[in-house]
Design a binder for these strands. Structure first.
Lengths: 336, 336
DNA sequence: AGTGGTATCGATACCGGTATCGGTATCATG
DNA sequence: CATGATACCGATACCGGTATCGATACCACT
C-alpha cells in the first residue's frame, strides 16, 4: 500500500504552501500566474488527483448527486440516468445510484445510506415514499427532485407528468379512433404505482364513455416481452372479440405484437395494441403499436438541471415543477 | 440551512463520549450493552445517520465502488450495473457510476474523478484503455476489475469472455447448421471494440471454411432496432441471395427480423439471422434469431464479488480471471 | 514620508469522524 | 494483599483538504 500523493506533496514540489497549492488547483484568484503554473506542473508531475472526501468534508458540501431508481431492468430508468449523467458532465458532480427494486423499505435504506455521503442533491423516482423516508428527505435539507410522476404533492421539486392523465389520454385517443371493445394487460401493478395510475386513468376514460372493460389480465413481477406474449395469449383466447388491448407498458405490448404476428392476428386492423413509453422496440413495428412517448432522458436532464441550479443559487429548487407530457402516437390507427 | 446532527450530538444525548458513541454505532466491542442501547436510542431519537465523508477520510477507505460503463442506452450495461448493485446490497458499499459514451478521453476524466473519491475498487468495461488511464489505474493501487472482455491482458482482475471466440463460435455453429452465404451487419464498430472483435472472430471462422463474406453493411452510432431495420433492408436489397446475416448485436438483429417479417422473408428458412447478447427482445421471436447469450448480470455480480473479496482480504484480487462464456442458441436452425 | 489599496501568500482552526493509547474499575487468582 | 487480565471509556492526534484572517510587499497618491 503505497502512500497516496497529497496536497502537501504538490505544495512541496512546487515550493509553496499547501494553501496556495489548493487555491491554484481550484483556480481561485489571489494566486500569481507564476505560482499557478508551478503548482499545476507539480501536480501533473507527481500524478496528483485530489481527494474529494477531504475537500467535501472541509467545505461541507459534496459534489455528489444521488439517483434512486426502482430498477435497471426496465430501460426507462437507465435512460433517465443517462440524462442525469449527461447533464452533469463537466460540472464536477458525480452521480451515485441506488436501485430499490420497487421496495419501499430498500428505498429508505438506500436513501439513508446516500444521505450519509452528504450529496448536494437527490433525484428519486416517483412521489410515493414511506413516511420515514419523507422525514429523512425533508430533514436532509438539500434539493430533492422527484421524477417521472406528478400525480400528487411533491416533497420539493418535481419533473414528470401525470400517469393518470397519460392513461386517460390514450384511452380517449383510442376511443376517438373508433375502438370500443377494450382489454387491459398489466404486470407488477402492486408495486409499480405509476403503472397502476395509468390503468386508473384509462378506466376512467372508458367509464366516461360507458364502455366496459371487457377483459383484464395481469401478471406479477417485472414486465418483459415474454410476459407480454403470455398476457396477450391469455387475453385473446379468453376474449377473441376485443378490438384493443392496452398494456401497462411497451415491453408487454411488444410481446403482444410478437404473439399476434405469429398467430396471424391483424394489428391494428383486427386488434389494436397500445403500450406506454415509446421505447425503441416499438420502432421495430412501425405504425403497429400505439403508445405514449415519454421524455425519459429529458426528465433526467431536467432533474439534474434543477439541482445544479439550486446548488449554484440559494440552495433551493423553489419547488419547481416541470411537466413533460408524453406525446401520443397512434400509428396506423390514425388513418382509420 | 439547519445544522446537521453529528456524532457529538448523539454522544451528548446518550451521555457518553463521542468515541463511545462511534464504537457503539459501528458495533465494535469495548462498549457495554447498556451504552450501546443508549447510543442507538439517542441516534434514532435525533435522526442521526452518519457522515461517510468524515468516516472515510478518517479511516482512509471509502465504501464506494466505481462502475464505469460506455453507455446506458444499450441494455447490457444497466444489467451489469444491476448485478453489481445486487451483489453490493447489504455490504454497506455504494456504487458510483460513470458513462464514457465510448470515448476514451471521457473515460480518463471519469476515472480520474472517481479515484478522487478514494473508492474501495473500480469496475470498468473492457480491456482497452489509454496509456494515461492505465497509469492512473495502476497508481491508484486499489482492486480493479475489467469486465465484459478477456481478449487481452487485464490490468488486474477480469470478468468476461472472449469476443473473438464468441464471434468465431457462432459462425462455426451457423456453418454447422448448413449456412454458407453470409452477410455481416454492424454499427458503432469504430468505437465498440468488442463488437469489432466479434466480427474478427466471425470472419476468421468463415476463412477457415473458405467461405466468402458476401455482403457487409455498417452504420455509425449506437445500435438500435431502427438501425437494424435499415441495415437489413440495405443488405437484402443488395444481396438477396444471402442465407444468413450476422448482426453485431441483438438490437440490430431484432430490427432485422422486424424488417423480414414485414417483407415476407422467411426467417430462418430463407435467411437466418444471428445476433449477440441474448436480450429479452429475442424472446419476442421465439426460435427465430440465433444468438450468443451472455451473462451480464452474473458478470456484474462476479466483478463486485471480486472487489468485496479483495477489500475484505489482503486488498488484492490476485489477478483473478473469471470467464463466463456465452451460450449459443440457434433456435429453429437447430432442427435443420 | 505617510496613507491606503491591491495582490499574494501562509499559519491556524476547523470539517466530523476513527485509530490509538492510556486510564479506571472490576474481578479472579496466587 | 499484590498482581494481572479484562471490560469499558475518553483524551488526543490525526485523515487531507478548505475557510478565514492576518502578514507582507509593492504601488499610487496626497
Amino acid at each position: 500500500m503505497k502512500k497516496r500523493k497529497t496536497l502537501v506533496d504538490v505544495a512541496a514540489a512546487a515550493g509553496v504552501s499547501k494553501m496556495t497549492a489548493s487555491r491554484a488547483l481550484r483556480g481561485e484568484k489571489d494566486v500569481s500566474k507564476e505560482s499557478v503554473e508551478r503548482v499545476l506542473a507539480a501536480a501533473r508531475e507527481i500524478g496528483y488527483y485530489g481527494n474529494h472526501l477531504a475537500a467535501s468534508l472541509s467545505s461541507s458540501s459534496a459534489e455528489l448527486i444521488g439517483v434512486v431508481v426502482p430498477a435497471l431492468a426496465n430501460v426507462v430508468f437507465p435512460e433517465v440516468m443517462s440524462g442525469v449523467s449527461h447533464a452533469l458532465r463537466g460540472t464536477g458532480f458525480q452521480p451515485v445510484f441506488g436501485v430499490t427494486e420497487y421496495d419501499t423499505e430498500k428505498e429508505y435504506e438506500i436513501i439513508r445510506s446516500m444521505l450519509s455521503w452528504r450529496p448536494a442533491g437527490l433525484i428519486i423516482t416517483g412521489l410515493e415514499q414511506t413516511e420515514a423516508t419523507r422525514k429523512l428527505l425533508i430533514g436532509a435539507d438539500i434539493p430533492i427532485v422527484q421524477t417521472m410522476d406528478c400525480d400528487g404533492t411533491p416533497l420539493d421539486a418535481c419533473v414528470g407528468f401525470s400517469h393518470t392523465k397519460a392513461g386517460y389520454d390514450i384511452a380517449m385517443a383510442l376511443i376517438a379512433a373508433g375502438r370500443t371493445r377494450f382489454g387491459y394487460a398489466g404486470s407488477n401493478l402492486d408495486k409499480d404505482t405509476r403503472g397502476a395510475k395509468r390503468r386508473e386513468g384509462f378506466l376512467k376514460a372508458l367509464q366516461e364513455h360507458d364502455l366496459p372493460l371487457i377483459g383484464e389480465v395481469t401478471a406479477p413481477g417485472l414486465s418483459s416481452i415474454q410476459t407480454g406474449r403470455k398476457l396477450a395469449e391469455e387475453m385473446l383466447t379468453g376474449h377473441p372479440d376485443l378490438d384493443c388491448i392496452y398494456f401497462s407498458n411497451d415491453d408487454l405490448a411488444a410481446g403482444g405484437i410478437c404473439y399476434c404476428l405469429e398467430q396471424g392476428v391483424a394489428v391494428p386492423d383486427q386488434v389494436a395494441l397500445a403500450g406506454f413509453n415509446g421505447l425503441d422496440i416499438i420502432e421495430g413495428f412501425p405504425g403497429r403499436i400505439a403508445t405514449s412517448r415519454t421524455a425519459r432522458r429529458a426528465i433526467g436532464e431536467a432533474a439534474a438541471g434543477i439541482i445544479l441550479e439550486a446548488v449554484k443559487g440559494n440552495g433551493s429548487t423553489g419547488g419547481q415543477r416541470i411537466i413533460l407530457e408524453p406525446s401520443i402516437t397512434l400509428g396506423a390507427l390514425e388513418k382509420n
